[in-house]
Every structure is written in C-alpha cells, then in structure tokens.
Design a protein around this nucleic acid. Structure first.
Length: 425
RNA sequence: GGAGAAGUAGCGAAGUGGUCAUAACGCGCCGCACUCGAAAUGCGGUUGCCCGAAAGGGCACGUGGGUUCGAAUCCCACCUUCUCCGCCA
C-alpha cells in the first residue's frame, strides 16, 4: 500500500510510475475520495468536541442538582448528526482503503523501464550452459525412467500438476530442503522458522496476495483460511501490527514450506514436469530492515540465494526485472534463473524482491529508531532460497549421464546418506 | 465440540456510568544527581493513530455493533488465551 499522503502530495510522480508499470489506475478518484474523507473528519470532530465539552457541563450541573434537560436535548441532536457523519466517513474510508489496496508499488529508480520480460536486464551469469556429448533428456523422462518421479499416479490420486516423488527422488527433495536450511542458518545468519501452511485473509492482504489475486489462491472450504502460496505470507505476517526495536533489525528468517498455487491463467504452460505444480516445496528467505539498509540487504539476500546454486554447481544467471515485469508488490526484483537443458534456456528458480514499505504498511510492521525518532515502517524483503522442485528438475537435467543415471552434486551427498548417484533400477 | 474464567502501556496490575487514559501503583527501560566506580537511593522521562499551515482538536481499554447527553465500566456478537470435560496425532 502506498502512503495516501504521499500520493496526494506527489500525484504526478505516482501517475508516471504507474504508467511505467502499464497500470491503468484512476488516481483522480483517489483524490476525490481523500478530499471527502477529510471533510467528513473535520465535520464529525467539530461536533465531537462540542459533545465532549457539553457532557462535562451536564455532569457538573447534575452534581449540583441543577436542571440539564435543555443541554441533553441539544446533545441528542448532536449525537445523531455525529452518527450520520461517521457513517458517511466509514463508507468513504472503506472505499478509499479498498482502492489503495489495488494500487501496485512504485518501482525503484534503478529499475529499467520496459514492458515485457524481454526488457529485463541480465546483470550477471555464473557457469556455462551444460554441454552434453549425447542427446540430453527432459527431467520428467529422466525421473520416470529412474522410478523417482510419478506424474501419472499423482494425476490418478489428485489431478494434473501434482507429483509423487518416490525412493531416492523423495530423498533428494528432502536432502535439498535440509541442505538449504543448514546453509542459510549456519553460514548466512538466518533464523529458521516453520510456519503454518494456512493463513487467514488478513495475512494474505498484508503481503499483497489479496484482494487482487484471489483466483490464484486455494481457499479451504468451510473456513476463512487460504493455503499459503509461499512462506513469505506467514513469515512476514509474524510481525504484523508490531512495533519493533531498532536493535532487533535486521530480522532474517529462513522457512521451509509447501506452497500451493492455483496457477489460474497458466493453462497449457509448462504442463510437463516439475516446473509448474499446484503444490511445491520451497525454502524462503525473509528480511525486515531499516529503510536505509534495504537495498544493500536485497543484494545480500540475492547472493545468499545464488550461493545455493553455486554449491550445487548449477549454471545460472541473474536478471533485473523491468517495470512491466515487476509484479504487484515489489519496488525492485531480481530473478535467479537456472539453466534448464530441456527448455534450452534459463528458467526462474528464485525471485528476490525489496518491497520497501509496501507490505509493512499493509501489515503495519514498524520500528522505533534508537534515537527516539518517529516510529517508522520497516522495509520487507524476501526471496526464494530456493524452490526445491525446480532444483530437482535442474539437477536431474544438468547432472544426467548417458546411461540414464544422475550424479548427485558433491555437497548433497552427505544429505543423501552417502549416495552419489541415482541409477536405473 | 461442551462448561467456566479472562483480555487495559514492554510486563504485572488498579479503575465497575461523568471529576484518573499523555492510564494510579509496582517492575523494566532511558537520562540526571549522589559515588573513585558500582549497588542502593532520589529526581525527571518513557503508547500509537488521524485531521490541521499552526494553534488546537479527535480516536483507541481484544475486535465489531448497541444502549446513553456521556461507556474501560451496561447489553449483543465475534476473536484470542487459560482451566476442566470430550475427541484426536
């Protein structure tokens, strides 16, 4: 959520920013509602002041056993009028709030202006696309031939876009979760959190999934709960409506969770394999920082995520998202993309974003500066560190051998109980 | 799921219709004094939001309604926590 005061005072700048995002939002409507709101507040408060004053007088008269009927009669009228103004105010306020919740974040000045993913800027590459002296296979074929992935059975049991991992496949998934959690807790200083996989509506609004993107979420029938699309939601909302102490910042959490996405609107895309599932595992990094530190922390967070791929020996590149590909909530976002031989290109495996105070405002997460300055919104950041299913896909494809087996990256071998290769049965 | 109790500042807690919500009192925290230094002691300071150029005003006692000239206080609903019972991994 943007600061209403900021929009009011910088209306042209905000309009221009939204245009860069290709967002068509009528900010004049905002100004109009905001104007009305302030009018009603002024009217209502003037009357409340009168009521408070007179109520004291009534109390005084009653104590002196004097007659206060004429004042009480006047106050009956005043109270009625206050109620009318407050009702109008409530309506405008809620309309204004609903409107604010649909305005996306303003891109940071360092974000390239562009329309589609073609305008994203590759900022660095690590490693080279894997070369094979045989015809490499896609991970869904490798996985099925090794008996470690079973899409057909998942379709029978649940439906499309679900998977059974079996045997060493299930073990590989689990090994990656543990490997990443250990890396981020012991080497990068994140505190581990294991969150609820369901949250209520207020939390989904806090991080920006709602109200605009309800069709992307799974709602649990008979409850007001949503399955989390990412651990970002519960972990960021841990600190909702809290005033933190400056000495606590930055707060850094790492969380494993399953993630659930309806994938509405992606019908027909990435239908095979592990790339686009309704349920997948992810290790997520979440940070809360002082405003002046958030862009440094974004670089560090991105590096922390990249480290996973480096240790696994998977070639990747980092792209800076352009204004048109930034998503609703981010002010700046890097995608880390891993080389996927079956796609013949790099595929997103992590998204690292700085939301500045956009989420903090929605979720009311603030901190008290040590110098006793004004209570201020924190900046929130998060990034995948990293998506597990896509990592399995990348390992299967990049580490496949001509005989159909898959070598386990060295760093992962201890987590696989010493197994360094998955062979055909 | 059933029965009961409770939700007020960082924590504990007072306040049961107007004169105590910048919220008594205690603890904690910050500053100052005393001290060679510390402890102890004393003094002072310690919620947030909204409207307003300012002066100033308004709001918030779990949340939302209601009654009333006036609600932390009375009524209703919901949420959360605790205790007991039932069920369950």
């Amino acid at each position: 959520m943007l600061d209403p005061k900021y929009i009011r005072e910088n209306i042209d700048e905000v309009k221009e920013a939204l245009q860069k995002r290709k967002e068509d939002i009528d900010l004049d409507k905002f100004l109009e509602l905001d104007q009305k709101r302030r009018e009603y507040i002024a009217q209502s408060e003037k009357l409340k002041n009168r009521r408070n004053t007179v109520s004291q007088e009534i109390a005084k008269l009653k104590r002196q056993k004097q007659d206060a009927d004429h004042l009480i009669k006047e106050m009956q009228e005043v109270s009625k009028t206050i109620k009318e103004y407050d009702e109008k105010l409530r309506e405008v306020q809620s309309e204004l709030n609903d409107f604010l919740l649909t305005i996306p974040n303003i891109p940071h000045s360092s974000v390239p202006v562009g329309e589609t993913e073609d305008d994203n800027v590759v900022v660095r590459k690590w490693g080279e696309p894997t070369k094979f002296d045989f015809e490499p296979k896609a991970h869904w074929d490798i996985g099925e031939e090794l008996g470690i992935l079973d899409f057909a059975t998942a379709a029978k049991v649940t439906g499309a876009r679900f998977t059974f991992y079996k045997g060493l496949g299930a073990r590989l998934e689990r090994a990656l979760v543990n490997f990443m959690l250990d890396l981020h807790t012991t080497e990068h200083g994140y505190e581990e959190v294991f969150p609820p996989f369901m949250v209520h509506r207020r939390s989904m609004i806090g991080t920006g999934q709602l109200p605009k993107f309800e069709e992307d979420a799974f709602k649990v029938q008979g409850t007001e709960y949503f399955l989390i699309p990412t651990a970002e939601v519960p972990v960021t909302n841990m600190y909702r409506e809290q005033i933190l102490d400056e000495s606590q910042l930055p707060i850094k959490h790492v969380a494993y969770s399953a993630c659930f996405r309806a994938e509405a609107g992606s019908a027909g895309r990435d239908t095979r394999g592990l790339i686009r599932q309704h349920q997948f595992n992810k290790v997520e990094l979440v940070k809360f920082t002082k405003p002046e530190d958030s862009y440094d922390e974004l670089e560090k967070l991105t590096n922390d995520a990249e480290r996973v791929l480096q240790l696994l020996g998977l070639p990747y590149r980092v792209s800076l998202m352009c204004t048109g590909d930034l998503g609703f909530t981010a002010a700046k976002k890097y995608d880390i993309e891993v080389w996927m031989p079956s796609y013949g290109r790099y595929v997103e495996i992590s998204s690292c974003s700085n939301f500045e105070d956009f989420q903090a405002r929605r979720a009311e997460i603030r901190y008290r500066p040590a110098d006793k300055g004004k209570v201020t919104y924190v900046h929130t950041l998060n990034g995948s560190g990293i998506a597990i299913g896509r990592t399995v896909a990348a390992i299967l494809e990049n580490y496949q051998q001509e005989d159909g087996s898959v070598v386990i990256p060295e760093k992962l071998v201890p987590y696989m109980g010493g197994i360094n290769k998955i062979n055909k049965l």
